[in-house]
Amino acid sequence: MKRRRRLILFMLVIPIHFGLVAQENMEIEEKRKWYKPDVVKLQYAGNIGYMSIGLGYNWWREIAQTDIMYGFVPEHHGDAVIHTFTIKNTFSIYEFNISKKYNVSPILGFSISLEPGENSYMSVPDRFPEGYYGPNNIYACLNLGLKSNFEFKEERYFSSMDIYSEINTVADYGFYNAIAKEDHSLIIYSLAIGINMFF
């Protein structure tokens, strides 16, 4: 029952993007200095924090976006606050132009996160024999989703914004599921939602 509800919710989130309406006009973008970020990103969930925020750059003819993010999980989701630093890469697979100033794109991507917690480490503490464990404070996530982009009528700080939702899994979970006999897809996948605000 719980699994079915989870599946229905995933299915509900995706079509919302296609229900959005286009906005009007866009100012001609000024040439930006290379080091200035193109985008501010805010994300809820997705295994990189309860909330995470970051700055990003567009590249490869704006098909790709790389974000550097900080996320945290508050104390009530465990015994201690979890801090996470992430590099997230997102690729727009195709752009569906719903109208002149509004488009929807399927997106896929991956991220690498670092969690500098007390019980996780890059190299094992001295009390362990050498090579006893590999690093356990770094992990990768895989994402597949949909984003809606619409442009603001008047550009003040931001010219346009994306709203996106993604189905996400930690790469280890994907590996576990691949080698398991039973399919645990509805346990290993979760949802993330977020916005990109473009300068």
Partner: peptide
């Protein structure tokens, strides 16, 4: 359906 971190213990 929202998960925050593989390290979260919720």
């Amino acid at each position: 359906i929202f998960e925050y971190s593989p390290y979260a213990a919720n």
